[in-house]
């Protein structure tokens, strides 16, 4: 009797947790399809708000910025992170372990701290750059360096690359460690230079890790708000920043629609990452069992 009661309570509690977790998102999604422009009264199904999005220049511009910055940051961070992971792998453990800890800090660090510190860094750098550029321009008249740099797409991209690299390293590192370390020697023994060995042997071996790392990095980039907010300056705006800006005015279901799209994109990306990881894990344990 008591037991049954208990399990009922359990279920109720579970249900509540899920309601609190997901009700806001469900509400957001549902009202993105609302025919009226209210977030509380249902006036029938329509795709109007999605259609409107396409004609909103501000939103389309920020979608473009977001995709471009995420793609570029992902590509650059994946290349840099992969080679960094190989560097870590080749290091002695005494050196590698503390450096890996340092690599992990930015992921744990509060976004706002990362954002503010990057912002301060850029401002400080621009100051120094201004002094240098005026001195340089005064010295000669062949090349003119811009003396005033401001935050914008460039700084946004650098910031995204920065916070993406650790995720790539973290995802490529284990793949390298699982690899038979004689493989590179074997490739070089059979006539490869190091670069050829990297392309023909290391790369196929660590490819799953690289792809997972890139997907994670892309996901992180696409939905980042805090760090972008501090490093984009006034000339560039990501989707998350635009949505934030829109909420300051009147909230229309247009926000629901764009948020829904962002939510679905991130959800799909995360699902892909997780399914890939689960599949690799299963394959690995199957291999271990056979041995």
């Amino acid at each position: 009797m008591k037991k049954k009661n208990n399990s009922l309570l359990n279920r109720l509690f579970m249900a509540l947790v899920f309601v609190f977790l997901y009700a806001p998102i469900v509400l957001l999604i549902v009202f993105s399809f609302n025919a009226g422009n209210s977030n509380t009264v249902w006036k029938g199904f329509s795709l109007d708000w999605y259609a409107k999005l396409l004609h909103n220049r501000l939103i389309m511009q920020s979608v473009y910025t977001t995709l471009l910055v995420s793609l570029l940051a992902t590509v650059i961070a994946t290349v840099a992170g992969t080679f960094a992971a190989i560097g870590f792998y080749a290091m002695r453990r005494k050196l590698r372990d503390p450096l890996m800890t340092i690599n992990n800090i930015p992921m744990m660090n509060a976004d706002i701290v990362t954002g503010v510190s990057l912002c301060l860094f850029f401002v400080a750098f621009f100051g120094l750059w201004g002094d240098f550029a005026s001195w340089f321009n005064g010295m000669q008249h062949l090349v003119r360096l811009p003396t005033r740099l401001t935050m914008g797409f460039g700084t946004l991209l650098i910031a995204h690359i920065c916070f993406n690299i650790p995720y790539v390293i973290l995802s490529v590192g284990p793949k390298l460690r699982q690899m038979d370390k004689n493989l590179v020697d074997a490739a070089m023994d059979l006539g490869c230079t190091w670069m050829q060995a990297f392309r023909k042997v290391i790369l196929p071996e660590i490819k799953p890790g690289i792809v997972s790392g890139a997907l994670t990095a892309f996901t992180m980039s696409i939905d980042d708000f805090v760090i972008s907010y501090f490093t984009a300056g006034s000339s560039a705006s990501t989707l998350a920043m635009t949505i934030y800006g829109m909420t300051k005015k009147r909230v229309t279901p247009e926000i629901n629609a764009i948020s829904t799209l962002l939510f679905v994109t991130v959800l799909v990306l995360l699902a892909i990452v997780n399914i890939r990881e689960a599949r690799q894990e299963r394959r690995r344990s199957a291999e271990l069992h056979r041995v």
Binding site: D180, N182, L183, D185, A186, A187, D189, V201, P204, E205
Partner: peptide, 12 residues
């Protein structure tokens, strides 16, 4: 040429 400990065949 070398035959390595645990073979080091290319798995892919």
């Amino acid at each position: 040429n070398t035959v390595f400990q645990k073979y080091a065949l290319f798995p892919h």
